[in-house]
């Protein structure tokens, strides 16, 4: 059984249909990339999984449980975390408080402290800056904080929305290395990216989203050699 199953969902903003019959699955331990141009519906898909948006029809199941109409805060408790597009760290709170907000649903202080050490292991810069106000961090540091914050809920799956956005090439490579490590450490990853090349390099499988529907799907390595993908997304 797939960990996350999205089945034929339709999502609209008022009169505009953003997602029209999208289906895909994510298995435990995979990195799945969802690539596509601006406005293809990638962020909408992630927001729908997280419960911030309600699909008009279709179904989303997590470990076999229907979560289509579950409230966002309960979805987090079930083990789905999201690193939103544009980071959206709490700029008025300190780095440490941001990370603690990530662990909001957890009660066991010992386990939270353990997760904090794990996150600091991945992102040593966050430890150095733990008492700094998050709004004063650089873009790259904020991206790391957003990722660390999501990991603090100890999720089974982490949804990442454009983690490379606005970062220097060096930082992009660093962020993608960390994503691979996060997956190796046991967290499944659903990665939404415009940087198709990078995404396909680390992903196991990928889906190509075009104007609200899945246009292509397959093993990441195969898609990388697909002529249509090459032309439209890899700039070759």
């Amino acid at each position: 059984m797939a960990m996350l199953e999205i089945e034929n969902i339709y999502v609209s903003y008022g009169m505009i249909n953003a997602i029209r019959g999208v289906s895909f699955t994510v298995d435990r331990g995979e990195i799945i990339a969802l690539i596509g141009a601006n406005g293809a519906g990638k962020t909408t898909t992630l927001h729908t999984i997280s419960g911030l948006l309600r699909p008009k029809s279709g179904s989303i199941r997590f470990n076999g449980t229907e979560i289509t109409r579950v409230a966002p805060h309960k979805i987090v408790s079930m083990g789905i975390a999201q690193v939103p597009e544009g980071r959206r760290v709490f700029s008025q709170l300190t780095v440490l408080d941001n990370l603690k907000m990530g662990a909001y649903i957890r009660r066991d202080q010992k386990e939270i402290a353990h997760s904090l050490q794990t996150v600091y292991g991945w992102f040593p810069r966050l430890k150095e800056r733990q008492n700094q106000i998050a709004g004063t961090l650089s873009g790259g540091e904020q991206q790391m904080l957003a990722m660390g914050r999501a990991l603090m809920s100890h999720p089974q799956i982490i949804l990442m929305d454009e983690p490379s956005m606005g970062l220097s090439p060096l930082l992009v490579t660093e962020v993608f290395n960390i994503i691979e490590e996060i997956c190796k450490a046991g967290t499944t990853v659903l990665l939404v990216e415009q940087n198709a090349k990078k995404a396909l390099t680390i992903a196991d499988r990928a889906y190509v989203l075009e104007t609200g529907t899945i246009a292509l799907e397959g093993k990441a390595a195969d898609l990388m050699n697909n002529d249509r993908v090459k032309k439209a997304y890899l700039g070759e």
Partner: peptide, 13 residues
Amino acid sequence: EDNGAAQLMGINV
């Protein structure tokens, strides 16, 4: 500050 991001933390808005 950010009601949507807060929901993604599991905060019941």
